[in-house]
Design a protein around this nucleic acid. Structure first.
Lengths: 189, 189
DNA sequence: GTAGACTTTCAGAAGTTTCTGAACTTTCAG
DNA sequence: CTGAAAGTTCAGAAACTTCTGAAAGTCTAC
Protein backbone atom coordinates (compact mmCIF):
# COMPACT_ATOMS: atom_id res chain seq x y z
CA UNK A 1 0.00 0.00 0.00
CA UNK A 2 1.64 3.21 -1.14
CA UNK A 3 0.42 6.64 -0.16
CA UNK A 4 1.25 9.69 -2.26
CA UNK A 5 3.55 12.26 -0.61
CA UNK A 6 0.72 14.79 -0.45
CA UNK A 7 -1.62 12.35 1.29
CA UNK A 8 1.24 11.26 3.52
CA UNK A 9 1.68 14.80 4.85
CA UNK A 10 -2.04 15.08 5.48
CA UNK A 11 -2.06 11.76 7.34
CA UNK A 12 0.97 12.68 9.47
CA UNK A 13 -0.55 16.01 10.38
CA UNK A 14 -3.74 14.35 11.59
CA UNK A 15 -1.64 11.95 13.62
CA UNK A 16 0.20 14.80 15.31
CA UNK A 17 -2.91 16.91 15.91
CA UNK A 18 -4.84 13.89 17.20
CA UNK A 19 -3.75 14.37 20.79
CA UNK A 20 -4.86 18.03 20.74
CA UNK A 21 -8.25 16.94 19.46
CA UNK A 22 -8.75 14.19 22.03
CA UNK A 23 -8.22 11.25 19.71
CA UNK A 24 -5.07 9.18 19.48
CA UNK A 25 -2.45 9.22 16.78
CA UNK A 26 -3.51 6.05 15.02
CA UNK A 27 -7.18 7.00 14.98
CA UNK A 28 -6.32 10.39 13.49
CA UNK A 29 -4.16 8.80 10.82
CA UNK A 30 -6.72 6.17 9.87
CA UNK A 31 -9.36 8.82 9.49
CA UNK A 32 -7.14 11.08 7.40
CA UNK A 33 -6.18 8.19 5.16
CA UNK A 34 -9.79 7.24 4.53
CA UNK A 35 -10.75 10.86 4.03
CA UNK A 36 -8.41 11.41 1.08
CA UNK A 37 -8.59 7.89 -0.33
CA UNK A 38 -10.36 7.67 -3.71
CA UNK A 39 -11.80 4.25 -2.77
CA UNK A 40 -12.73 2.40 0.41
CA UNK A 41 -9.88 0.55 2.16
CA UNK A 42 -9.78 -2.65 4.16
CA UNK A 43 -7.97 -3.11 7.45
CA UNK A 44 -4.91 -4.74 5.91
CA UNK A 45 -4.41 -1.91 3.46
CA UNK A 46 -4.61 0.57 6.32
CA UNK A 47 -2.15 -1.51 8.34
CA UNK A 48 0.33 -1.46 5.45
CA UNK A 49 -0.15 2.24 4.68
CA UNK A 50 0.42 3.35 8.28
CA UNK A 51 2.93 0.72 9.46
CA UNK A 52 1.08 -0.01 12.67
CA UNK A 53 -0.19 -3.30 14.02
CA UNK A 54 -3.28 -4.96 12.66
CA UNK A 55 -4.89 -4.96 16.10
CA UNK A 56 -4.28 -1.27 16.52
CA UNK A 57 -6.11 -0.64 13.24
CA UNK A 58 -8.98 -2.83 14.38
CA UNK A 59 -9.36 -0.83 17.58
CA UNK A 60 -9.02 2.46 15.75
CA UNK A 61 -11.76 1.54 13.30
CA UNK A 62 -14.02 0.55 16.19
CA UNK A 63 -13.48 3.95 17.73
CA UNK A 64 -14.19 5.76 14.45
CA UNK A 65 -17.37 3.70 14.11
CA UNK A 66 -18.45 4.77 17.58
CA UNK A 67 -17.99 8.38 16.45
CA UNK A 68 -19.95 7.52 13.28
CA UNK A 69 -17.10 8.96 11.21
CA UNK A 70 -16.55 5.93 8.96
CA UNK A 71 -18.92 3.73 7.01
CA UNK A 72 -18.55 0.02 6.53
CA UNK A 73 -19.01 -1.42 3.04
CA UNK A 74 -18.64 -4.73 1.27
CA UNK A 75 -17.29 -5.40 -2.18
CA UNK A 76 -19.01 -8.16 -4.14
CA UNK A 77 -17.04 -11.40 -3.97
CA UNK A 78 -14.77 -10.19 -1.15
CA UNK A 79 -15.66 -10.79 2.43
CA UNK A 80 -13.23 -8.31 3.91
CA UNK A 81 -14.70 -5.18 5.40
CA UNK A 82 -14.03 -1.96 3.53
CA UNK A 83 -14.20 1.41 5.23
CA UNK A 84 -14.74 4.84 3.81
CA UNK A 85 -15.18 8.33 5.22
CA UNK A 86 -18.55 9.83 4.24
CA UNK A 87 -18.23 12.17 1.23
CA UNK A 88 -20.21 15.12 2.51
CA UNK A 89 -17.94 17.30 4.65
CA UNK A 90 -20.92 19.17 6.02
CA UNK A 91 -22.47 15.90 7.22
CA UNK A 92 -19.12 14.99 8.78
CA UNK A 93 -19.00 18.31 10.60
CA UNK A 94 -22.51 17.78 11.95
CA UNK A 95 -21.71 14.29 13.17
CA UNK A 96 -18.56 15.51 14.87
CA UNK A 97 -20.30 18.46 16.52
CA UNK A 98 -23.12 16.24 17.74
CA UNK A 99 -20.83 13.58 19.17
CA UNK A 100 -18.63 16.12 20.89
CA UNK A 101 -21.68 17.80 22.38
CA UNK A 102 -22.86 14.46 23.74
CA UNK A 103 -19.51 13.64 25.27
CA UNK A 104 -18.12 17.01 26.29
CA UNK A 105 -21.04 19.33 26.96
CA UNK A 106 -24.16 17.40 27.92
CA UNK A 107 -22.70 15.90 31.12
CA UNK A 108 -21.75 19.38 32.28
CA UNK A 109 -25.20 20.79 31.50
CA UNK A 110 -26.78 17.97 33.51
CA UNK A 111 -24.47 18.61 36.44
CA UNK A 112 -25.21 22.34 36.34
CA UNK A 113 -28.98 21.81 36.17
CA UNK A 114 -28.85 19.47 39.16
CA UNK A 115 -26.73 21.90 41.15
CA UNK A 116 -29.09 24.77 40.36
CA UNK A 117 -32.10 22.87 41.72
CA UNK A 118 -30.66 22.79 45.22
CA UNK A 119 -31.37 25.40 47.86
CA UNK A 120 -28.15 27.27 48.66
CA UNK A 121 -26.93 26.56 52.19
CA UNK A 122 -24.84 29.71 52.62
CA UNK A 123 -23.99 33.04 51.05
CA UNK A 124 -21.01 31.40 49.32
CA UNK A 125 -23.24 28.69 47.89
CA UNK A 126 -25.65 31.35 46.65
CA UNK A 127 -22.75 33.06 44.91
CA UNK A 128 -21.54 29.77 43.44
CA UNK A 129 -25.03 29.09 42.12
CA UNK A 130 -25.23 32.51 40.48
CA UNK A 131 -21.95 31.76 38.68
CA UNK A 132 -23.15 28.33 37.67
CA UNK A 133 -26.35 29.79 36.28
CA UNK A 134 -24.37 32.22 34.12
CA UNK A 135 -22.31 29.35 32.80
CA UNK A 136 -25.39 27.21 32.26
CA UNK A 137 -27.25 29.90 30.33
CA UNK A 138 -24.28 30.66 28.12
CA UNK A 139 -23.69 27.00 27.28
CA UNK A 140 -27.38 26.59 26.43
CA UNK A 141 -27.28 29.64 24.18
CA UNK A 142 -24.20 28.56 22.29
CA UNK A 143 -25.23 24.91 21.92
CA UNK A 144 -28.64 26.15 20.78
CA UNK A 145 -27.02 28.18 18.00
CA UNK A 146 -24.95 25.18 17.08
CA UNK A 147 -28.02 23.01 16.89
CA UNK A 148 -29.63 25.47 14.53
CA UNK A 149 -26.58 25.85 12.35
CA UNK A 150 -26.39 22.07 12.20
CA UNK A 151 -29.88 21.94 10.79
CA UNK A 152 -28.95 24.04 7.77
CA UNK A 153 -29.25 21.83 4.72
CA UNK A 154 -26.51 21.36 2.16
CA UNK A 155 -28.11 23.75 -0.37
CA UNK A 156 -28.42 26.61 2.07
CA UNK A 157 -24.88 25.94 3.11
CA UNK A 158 -23.57 26.13 -0.44
CA UNK A 159 -25.25 29.51 -0.85
CA UNK A 160 -23.67 30.70 2.37
CA UNK A 161 -20.30 29.45 1.16
CA UNK A 162 -20.55 31.37 -2.08
CA UNK A 163 -21.59 34.40 -0.08
CA UNK A 164 -18.63 34.47 2.26
CA UNK A 165 -18.39 34.08 5.93
CA UNK A 166 -19.54 37.25 7.71
CA UNK A 167 -22.44 36.93 10.14
CA UNK A 168 -23.52 40.28 8.82
CA UNK A 169 -24.07 38.59 5.50
CA UNK A 170 -25.99 35.78 7.15
CA UNK A 171 -28.34 38.41 8.49
CA UNK A 172 -28.80 39.90 5.02
CA UNK A 173 -29.38 36.39 3.74
CA UNK A 174 -32.31 36.16 6.15
CA UNK A 175 -33.90 39.13 4.33
CA UNK A 176 -33.36 37.60 0.95
CA UNK A 177 -35.00 34.33 1.89
CA UNK A 178 -38.00 36.17 3.23
CA UNK A 179 -38.16 38.55 0.25
CA UNK A 180 -38.37 35.54 -2.02
CA UNK A 181 -41.56 34.56 -0.22
CA UNK A 182 -39.98 31.71 1.68
CA UNK A 183 -41.47 32.81 5.00
CA UNK A 184 -39.15 33.51 7.91
CA UNK A 185 -37.25 30.26 7.61
CA UNK A 186 -33.64 29.95 6.56
CA UNK A 187 -33.51 26.94 8.80
CA UNK A 188 -34.79 23.61 7.69
CA UNK A 189 -36.57 21.69 10.44
CA UNK B 1 -9.70 25.97 53.27
CA UNK B 2 -13.18 24.49 53.20
CA UNK B 3 -15.26 24.24 50.05
CA UNK B 4 -19.05 23.99 50.22
CA UNK B 5 -20.53 20.66 49.06
CA UNK B 6 -22.12 22.34 46.04
CA UNK B 7 -18.83 23.91 44.94
CA UNK B 8 -17.09 20.63 45.65
CA UNK B 9 -19.28 18.79 43.15
CA UNK B 10 -18.66 21.47 40.56
CA UNK B 11 -14.90 21.26 41.13
CA UNK B 12 -14.86 17.46 40.93
CA UNK B 13 -16.87 17.49 37.73
CA UNK B 14 -14.39 19.86 36.08
CA UNK B 15 -11.58 17.60 37.20
CA UNK B 16 -13.22 14.58 35.61
CA UNK B 17 -14.19 16.35 32.38
CA UNK B 18 -10.75 17.93 32.11
CA UNK B 19 -9.28 15.04 30.13
CA UNK B 20 -12.12 15.17 27.59
CA UNK B 21 -11.46 18.88 27.12
CA UNK B 22 -7.71 18.54 26.72
CA UNK B 23 -6.71 19.99 30.08
CA UNK B 24 -5.57 17.98 33.07
CA UNK B 25 -7.48 17.22 36.21
CA UNK B 26 -5.72 19.71 38.47
CA UNK B 27 -6.01 22.56 35.97
CA UNK B 28 -9.73 21.89 35.58
CA UNK B 29 -10.23 21.83 39.33
CA UNK B 30 -8.26 25.01 39.96
CA UNK B 31 -10.27 26.81 37.33
CA UNK B 32 -13.59 25.56 38.68
CA UNK B 33 -12.63 26.57 42.21
CA UNK B 34 -11.71 30.10 41.13
CA UNK B 35 -14.81 30.35 38.98
CA UNK B 36 -17.24 29.83 41.87
CA UNK B 37 -15.15 31.51 44.56
CA UNK B 38 -16.62 34.78 45.88
CA UNK B 39 -13.12 36.22 46.31
CA UNK B 40 -9.67 35.74 44.76
CA UNK B 41 -7.59 32.91 46.19
CA UNK B 42 -3.85 32.47 46.68
CA UNK B 43 -1.89 29.36 45.78
CA UNK B 44 -1.81 27.99 49.34
CA UNK B 45 -5.58 28.25 49.67
CA UNK B 46 -5.98 26.37 46.39
CA UNK B 47 -3.48 23.74 47.54
CA UNK B 48 -5.48 23.20 50.74
CA UNK B 49 -8.85 23.15 48.99
CA UNK B 50 -7.83 20.58 46.40
CA UNK B 51 -5.36 18.48 48.42
CA UNK B 52 -2.72 18.49 45.72
CA UNK B 53 0.91 19.55 45.92
CA UNK B 54 1.95 23.16 45.99
CA UNK B 55 4.09 22.71 42.90
CA UNK B 56 1.21 21.20 40.98
CA UNK B 57 -0.88 24.27 41.77
CA UNK B 58 1.94 26.53 40.66
CA UNK B 59 2.15 24.76 37.30
CA UNK B 60 -1.61 24.68 36.91
CA UNK B 61 -1.87 28.42 37.49
CA UNK B 62 0.89 29.03 34.94
CA UNK B 63 -1.09 27.03 32.41
CA UNK B 64 -4.32 28.91 33.15
CA UNK B 65 -2.42 32.17 32.75
CA UNK B 66 -1.16 31.03 29.35
CA UNK B 67 -4.79 30.39 28.40
CA UNK B 68 -5.66 33.85 29.79
CA UNK B 69 -8.36 32.24 31.92
CA UNK B 70 -7.23 33.65 35.27
CA UNK B 71 -6.20 37.11 36.41
CA UNK B 72 -3.50 37.88 38.93
CA UNK B 73 -4.24 40.40 41.70
CA UNK B 74 -2.59 41.73 44.82
CA UNK B 75 -4.14 42.54 48.16
CA UNK B 76 -2.76 45.58 49.99
CA UNK B 77 -0.30 44.54 52.68
CA UNK B 78 -0.01 40.94 51.45
CA UNK B 79 2.65 39.94 49.00
CA UNK B 80 1.07 36.65 48.00
CA UNK B 81 -0.43 36.46 44.54
CA UNK B 82 -4.19 36.16 44.38
CA UNK B 83 -5.98 34.68 41.40
CA UNK B 84 -9.49 35.11 40.16
CA UNK B 85 -11.47 33.92 37.14
CA UNK B 86 -12.79 36.87 35.08
CA UNK B 87 -16.44 37.65 35.90
CA UNK B 88 -17.82 37.92 32.41
CA UNK B 89 -18.69 34.43 31.14
CA UNK B 90 -19.01 35.72 27.60
CA UNK B 91 -15.45 37.06 27.71
CA UNK B 92 -14.33 33.70 29.06
CA UNK B 93 -16.03 31.91 26.20
CA UNK B 94 -14.35 34.17 23.66
CA UNK B 95 -10.93 33.64 25.19
CA UNK B 96 -11.42 29.90 25.21
CA UNK B 97 -12.69 29.77 21.63
CA UNK B 98 -9.81 31.92 20.42
CA UNK B 99 -7.14 29.89 22.20
CA UNK B 100 -8.58 26.62 20.95
CA UNK B 101 -8.72 27.95 17.42
CA UNK B 102 -5.05 28.94 17.64
CA UNK B 103 -3.98 25.55 18.94
CA UNK B 104 -6.39 23.15 17.26
CA UNK B 105 -7.50 24.71 13.99
CA UNK B 106 -4.95 27.20 12.67
CA UNK B 107 -2.14 24.65 12.21
CA UNK B 108 -4.47 22.48 10.16
CA UNK B 109 -5.59 25.39 8.00
CA UNK B 110 -1.95 26.24 7.31
CA UNK B 111 -1.17 22.65 6.37
CA UNK B 112 -4.18 22.50 4.06
CA UNK B 113 -3.34 25.78 2.36
CA UNK B 114 0.22 24.60 1.72
CA UNK B 115 -0.97 21.27 0.36
CA UNK B 116 -3.43 23.00 -1.96
CA UNK B 117 -0.71 25.14 -3.53
CA UNK B 118 1.09 22.10 -4.93
CA UNK B 119 0.47 20.69 -8.39
CA UNK B 120 -1.07 17.22 -8.07
CA UNK B 121 1.32 14.50 -9.29
CA UNK B 122 -1.32 11.86 -10.04
CA UNK B 123 -5.05 11.26 -10.30
CA UNK B 124 -5.07 10.12 -6.65
CA UNK B 125 -3.32 13.30 -5.58
CA UNK B 126 -5.85 15.35 -7.52
CA UNK B 127 -8.62 13.55 -5.66
CA UNK B 128 -6.89 14.05 -2.32
CA UNK B 129 -6.57 17.76 -3.10
CA UNK B 130 -10.28 18.06 -3.92
CA UNK B 131 -11.09 16.49 -0.56
CA UNK B 132 -8.66 18.78 1.22
CA UNK B 133 -10.18 21.80 -0.47
CA UNK B 134 -13.64 20.80 0.76
CA UNK B 135 -12.30 20.45 4.28
CA UNK B 136 -10.42 23.74 4.02
CA UNK B 137 -13.44 25.69 2.79
CA UNK B 138 -15.71 24.27 5.47
CA UNK B 139 -13.26 25.03 8.26
CA UNK B 140 -12.85 28.58 6.96
CA UNK B 141 -16.62 29.05 6.84
CA UNK B 142 -17.22 27.76 10.35
CA UNK B 143 -14.28 29.57 11.95
CA UNK B 144 -15.44 32.71 10.12
CA UNK B 145 -18.86 32.42 11.75
CA UNK B 146 -17.21 31.85 15.07
CA UNK B 147 -15.09 34.92 14.64
CA UNK B 148 -18.18 36.98 13.97
CA UNK B 149 -20.13 35.55 16.87
CA UNK B 150 -17.12 36.27 19.05
CA UNK B 151 -17.29 39.91 18.10
CA UNK B 152 -20.81 40.31 19.46
CA UNK B 153 -20.65 42.63 22.44
CA UNK B 154 -22.11 41.82 25.84
CA UNK B 155 -25.21 44.00 25.30
CA UNK B 156 -26.16 42.37 22.02
CA UNK B 157 -25.57 39.03 23.66
CA UNK B 158 -27.91 39.81 26.53
CA UNK B 159 -30.63 40.70 24.05
CA UNK B 160 -30.06 37.45 22.22
CA UNK B 161 -30.22 35.59 25.51
CA UNK B 162 -33.55 37.10 26.40
CA UNK B 163 -34.76 36.28 22.93
CA UNK B 164 -33.95 32.60 23.03
CA UNK B 165 -31.63 30.56 20.99
CA UNK B 166 -33.07 29.90 17.54
CA UNK B 167 -31.02 31.00 14.57
CA UNK B 168 -34.31 31.94 13.00
CA UNK B 169 -34.70 34.51 15.73
CA UNK B 170 -31.19 35.77 15.14
CA UNK B 171 -32.20 36.42 11.56
CA UNK B 172 -35.26 38.35 12.70
CA UNK B 173 -33.03 40.25 15.06
CA UNK B 174 -31.06 41.40 12.01
CA UNK B 175 -34.24 43.06 10.72
CA UNK B 176 -34.95 44.75 13.98
CA UNK B 177 -31.52 46.28 14.24
CA UNK B 178 -31.82 47.62 10.72
CA UNK B 179 -35.40 48.85 11.28
CA UNK B 180 -34.12 50.86 14.22
CA UNK B 181 -31.84 52.72 11.82
CA UNK B 182 -28.68 51.05 13.02
CA UNK B 183 -27.48 50.25 9.50
CA UNK B 184 -26.73 46.67 8.60
CA UNK B 185 -24.61 45.95 11.63
CA UNK B 186 -25.53 43.64 14.47
CA UNK B 187 -21.84 43.00 14.76
CA UNK B 188 -19.55 45.30 16.62
CA UNK B 189 -16.18 45.68 14.92
C1' DG C 1 -18.61 -29.74 9.65
C1' DT C 2 -14.24 -27.86 8.73
C1' DA C 3 -10.23 -25.22 6.75
C1' DG C 4 -8.72 -21.11 6.30
C1' DA C 5 -9.56 -16.12 5.70
C1' DC C 6 -10.76 -12.41 8.33
C1' DT C 7 -11.60 -9.93 12.68
C1' DT C 8 -11.53 -9.09 17.67
C1' DT C 9 -9.78 -9.33 22.27
C1' DC C 10 -6.52 -8.88 25.74
C1' DA C 11 -2.27 -9.04 28.75
C1' DG C 12 1.54 -6.78 29.19
C1' DA C 13 5.35 -3.70 26.95
C1' DA C 14 6.31 0.86 25.49
C1' DG C 15 5.36 5.48 25.60
C1' DT C 16 3.33 9.66 27.55
C1' DT C 17 1.45 12.66 30.97
C1' DT C 18 0.75 14.11 35.54
C1' DC C 19 2.14 14.83 40.10
C1' DT C 20 5.26 15.21 44.02
C1' DG C 21 8.99 16.62 47.14
C1' DA C 22 13.20 18.75 47.37
C1' DA C 23 16.18 22.18 45.82
C1' DC C 24 16.47 26.57 44.01
C1' DT C 25 15.29 31.63 43.04
C1' DT C 26 12.95 35.84 44.11
C1' DT C 27 11.06 39.29 47.03
C1' DC C 28 10.72 42.35 50.69
C1' DA C 29 10.28 43.71 55.82
C1' DG C 30 13.10 44.79 59.31
C1' DC D 1 22.22 43.16 54.24
C1' DT D 2 19.62 39.18 56.14
C1' DG D 3 16.32 35.72 56.61
C1' DA D 4 11.90 34.12 56.16
C1' DA D 5 7.97 33.90 53.14
C1' DA D 6 6.43 33.18 48.51
C1' DG D 7 7.02 31.31 44.11
C1' DT D 8 9.34 28.25 40.50
C1' DT D 9 11.78 24.43 38.56
C1' DC D 10 12.89 19.85 37.84
C1' DA D 11 14.14 14.78 38.30
C1' DG D 12 12.03 10.88 39.10
C1' DA D 13 7.71 8.21 40.83
C1' DA D 14 3.03 7.17 39.87
C1' DA D 15 -0.70 6.92 36.90
C1' DC D 16 -2.57 6.57 32.60
C1' DT D 17 -2.82 5.70 27.54
C1' DT D 18 -1.44 3.54 23.45
C1' DC D 19 0.32 -0.16 20.91
C1' DT D 20 1.71 -4.88 19.91
C1' DG D 21 1.78 -9.93 19.24
C1' DA D 22 -0.43 -13.94 20.40
C1' DA D 23 -4.54 -16.28 21.09
C1' DA D 24 -9.36 -16.73 20.51
C1' DG D 25 -13.46 -15.95 17.97
C1' DT D 26 -16.41 -15.70 13.74
C1' DC D 27 -17.79 -16.53 9.28
C1' DT D 28 -18.29 -18.76 4.79
C1' DA D 29 -17.11 -21.57 0.76
C1' DC D 30 -16.60 -25.99 -0.06
Amino acid sequence: MDVSPLAQRFVSHFGEMGSRWGINRTVGQIYALLFVSPRPLNADEITAALSVSRSNVSMGLKELESWRLVRLEHQPGDRREYYRAPEDVWAIFRTLAEERRKREVDPTLTMLRDALLEAPASADEAHAQRRMREMHDLIELVTGWFNDVQRLDADTLKKLMRMGTRVQKVLEFGDKVRALGGGARAVKE
